[in-house]
Design a protein around this nucleic acid. Structure first.
Lengths: 223, 223
DNA sequence: TGTAATGTTTACCAACCGGTCAAATTATCA
DNA sequence: TGATAATTTGACCGGTTGGTAAACATTACA
């Protein structure tokens, strides 16, 4: 037989699992750093420590590799939002969501950049995931936030833009890492910037979402 | 003479100016959408409406085109931060900075994505700009913010992370536009999302930076 | 108007890139 | 062990890409 390629034989060989693991790890390294078009199969092969035809034995095409990687990573990536709990204390839930997202930016920056690259270039490969599972999950959690606001547990605000703000501020530390480092300077070599960021962001969002008697009317909104 | 190429002759021809303008416009379109490696000279040539060798007559290499584009756009891009005025009302200054950044995300999304692509992939072509002019400008404005905080005009906070938060939340609407649209759904076709974002962000930052008697001590910061 | 400088295009090249093929090597198991 | 299936690799292919050479066209200007 010439084309087992994972799908054909139900039972996966030990070697198959190991090699596919190796390849996806290397693919994550390369795709997250250069984007889909900017990456070459040779690069991935070199990082994975195997020959190009060998990669193509496990994944028929470059696109197949990318898709497998996206599928594998997307679930994990959305976990923090899934944990968002309607029953919990609203402010505490938002705080811990921020903390979890920031931890992911620190511990899984490549995953963050993989999606950032993809979305930035128009999401040509993950449009369905965005309009499907992602939107549904966000809709669900936005409804939770809206309920909290109506119940007076947090300040009234647009839940979608709140989620966008949490995404952008936290993922910024993964996606724009070189810029953050450049601006903060060399002395900020360790992970200290993540702790500073956590302090700042938790305070910003918590104070910003506190229910207020006179909701900053002196800065009333014009067009 | 065969190689005038702008630099050699001091006086620029009318044609030179027009064509270089055309090329950089096309380059912005293509580079911002696909990143440096993902873009081809042929693509840019087609958008610019001229032949590939003709492009290379004005810019010797693909890198030269990219560099010229970056140089041209970076100045404009930093204008909103430059306008940040130490003498003004602190909260008003921050609000109008947010507004200006959001307007830029709406009106110049390609410029935003150009830099996002670049930084995301490790800023291989603009490292010097980040560590030089950008850092100096941010250092200067961070000092202004720190002064305001010390004077009790705004809440005490890390000025660098405040700036990062404003950058990330506003640029998010340009860089991750497809994701924002996907999550908000089709009904949000116009520019309404920018107005909603402005309302949300101005309120978030203004309320979050309000000086407080008891600075949210009940959510005291742990590690 | 003539001519030298400037601008444009066609044809082309070498390197690279995604992917194939067939032969060789290794693992599996009756 | 031997035969069969699974895995790996070197050689190769067609298309693309960044860039060049040189002939051709146009403009500026004395």
């Amino acid at each position: 037989m010439v084309l087992p390629r994972a799908a054909k034989t139900q039972r996966r060989t030990r070697i198959q699992e190991e090699k596919e693991e190796q390849i996806l790890e290397a693919a994550l390294e390369v795709f997250s750093a250069h984007g889909f078009r900017g990456s070459t199969i040779d690069q991935i092969a070199e990082v994975a420590g195997m020959s190009k035809p060998n990669l193509l034995y496990y994944f028929r095409t470059k696109e197949a590799m990318h898709r497998a990687l996206i599928d594998r990573v997307l679930d994990t990536w959305l976990d923090p939002l899934r944990e968002f709990n309607a029953e919990g204390n609203p402010v505490a839930e938002i705080r811990s969501y921020i903390r979890r997202k920031l931890e992911m930016a620190r511990d899984f920056p490549r995953e963050s950049r993989l999606f950032a690259n993809e979305v930035l270039q128009g999401a040509p490969h993950i449009e369905d995931e965005l309009k499907g599972p992602l939107k549904e999950l966000v809709d669900e959690k936005a409804e939770v936030i809206r309920t909290w606001a109506k119940a007076g547990k947090i300040a009234k605000c647009d839940p979608y833009h709140l989620i966008f703000a949490i995404w952008s501020t936290t993922q910024h530390y993964a996606d724009f890492d070189v810029q953050v480092r450049a601006v903060l300077g060399q002395e900020n070599a360790g992970d200290g910037r993540f702790e500073d960021a956590a302090r700042f962001l938790e305070r910003l969002f918590v104070d910003g979402l506190q229910v207020r008697e006179q909701p900053s009317s002196e800065y009333g909104l014009e067009g």
